[in-house]
Computed example of a mutant assay.
Amino acid sequence: MKPRPTSPAAHRTVLLLTAVCAAALTATACGGSPGSAPPVPGKSGGAGPDYLADAPEAAAAAMPDDSTMAKIRKRGYLIVGGSSDAPLLSQKNPTTGKYEGFDADMGRLLAAYILGEPNVRIVSSATQTREALLQNHTVDVVFQTYSITPERARQVTFVGPYLSSGFQIATRKGTQGITTLADLNGQTVIAGANTPAIPEIKKAAPKAKILTFDTDPACIQALKQGRGKAYVQDNITLAGTVKTSPDLQITGEPFNEGNMGIGVPKDQPEMSKFVNTWLTKVIDDGHWSKVWKANFGDTLGDKTPPVVGSVPDVYSSKD
């Protein structure tokens, strides 16, 4: 059968439909989905996480001209003390150069609250340098699984808790007979320098030799090299570490659950009050849970957010 000639109008219709379909296919190939809304400029920085698209912003009245928050807003970015090598918490992606993980995302949420945009600069800090970075105002805040202790609270202000975690024991895969701290008595045990794990080890295994390192990767490397029988750390940190280290395992049940806070300089009470208001807001409106699910959902499942202000008053002591 001989095909019928196509009218000019029909030809234009075909061309239009072809263009629409091509655009839809291009959007899908770029990671979008047909009908999906474009990312919010300045908020997500591109495709970005969903939780940034509707991140809360502080009212101008909450940031008076002479306040720390106003100075941060004028500067144009928030300076966060954090890790660059903690999987699922705050780790620099070698390909994109961006920081990824729960702590990194919480920092972006706070930046968006102050600036209207998630502009953050992360200063890499070690366990032993966090107090100094806050005291000399090198950083505005610290997001780094910062365990709240009375000794630390005498040097910095803790807002929160924003996380809670129990300690667990990591060993090389195949290690048997270690399920509690008491099982480490007489063994060499690895721990982060200046962490709450150290007194717990001393109490439960007084004959253990404790080998400390400044960073989690250094502790993990020592464990892999056999320099210690086990590594004791909070289970949130270990979840990220073991996920990327299949030659290690977590053993036993979590113990001595503790609270982690956001570090703020001691001499900036208005900033700590502001951050407290922000943290309460992002927990109540579900942003905290979105950030948790995005980073820990596959590994640790759902988690109930901590109750802000539930830390005993002794942790806020100024003496």
Rank of each mutant, 00 (worst) to 15 (best):
K273N: 13
A58E: 02
V307A: 15
P34Y: 15
D247M: 10
A55T: 11
N136K: 07
T175V: 13
G48Y: 12
R172A: 06
M260W: 05
M69Y: 04
T280D: 13
L184K: 07
L184N: 09
D105L: 05
V311T: 14
G166K: 09
T299M: 10
N235A: 09
I114C: 13
P265D: 05
D285F: 01
R154W: 01
G177D: 12
G101C: 03
P49A: 12
L300R: 02
E257A: 14
T157F: 00
D183F: 09
S84H: 13
L89W: 01
W288V: 04
A19G: 11
A19W: 03
Y77A: 04
Y77D: 02
A170E: 05
L300P: 01
D183T: 05
G48V: 12
K273G: 14
D302H: 07
G42M: 06
V275R: 04
G286C: 06
G48P: 11
Q91W: 03
A208R: 02
Q268G: 08
N235E: 14
V123Y: 11
E257Q: 14
D267W: 06
P196A: 10
R12S: 09
V120N: 00
I262T: 04
P312M: 14
Q168D: 03
G177M: 08
V159L: 05
R154F: 01
G46D: 06
D214S: 13
V291E: 05
S33K: 13
T96W: 04
N235T: 09
R108Q: 15
M63C: 12
K202I: 01
Q268A: 15
K229N: 01
A205W: 07
V159E: 07
M63F: 10
L211R: 02
V141C: 01
T212A: 01
L109S: 10
G82A: 14
S289C: 01
I178K: 06
Q187S: 08
M1C: 11
R154G: 12
R73K: 15
E200C: 04
T149A: 03
I148A: 05
D50N: 12
S317M: 01
G31K: 02
D183V: 08
G226C: 09
C219I: 03
T237G: 15
Y99M: 08
Q128E: 06
T13V: 13
Q144R: 07
L52S: 08
E257M: 09
G240E: 06
N295Q: 07
V282A: 12
E151R: 11
G101Y: 02
S124M: 04
A59R: 07
F296Q: 04
E117L: 00
T304C: 00
D85V: 10
T175Q: 08
F158V: 02
T18P: 00
T241I: 15
N185I: 00
A230L: 05
T237I: 15
V14H: 03
Q249G: 06
Y146K: 01
T280N: 15
V20D: 02
G261H: 08
K318H: 12
A27T: 11
T195D: 13
T26D: 10
L15K: 11
P312C: 11
Q128I: 03
G76N: 08
P306E: 11
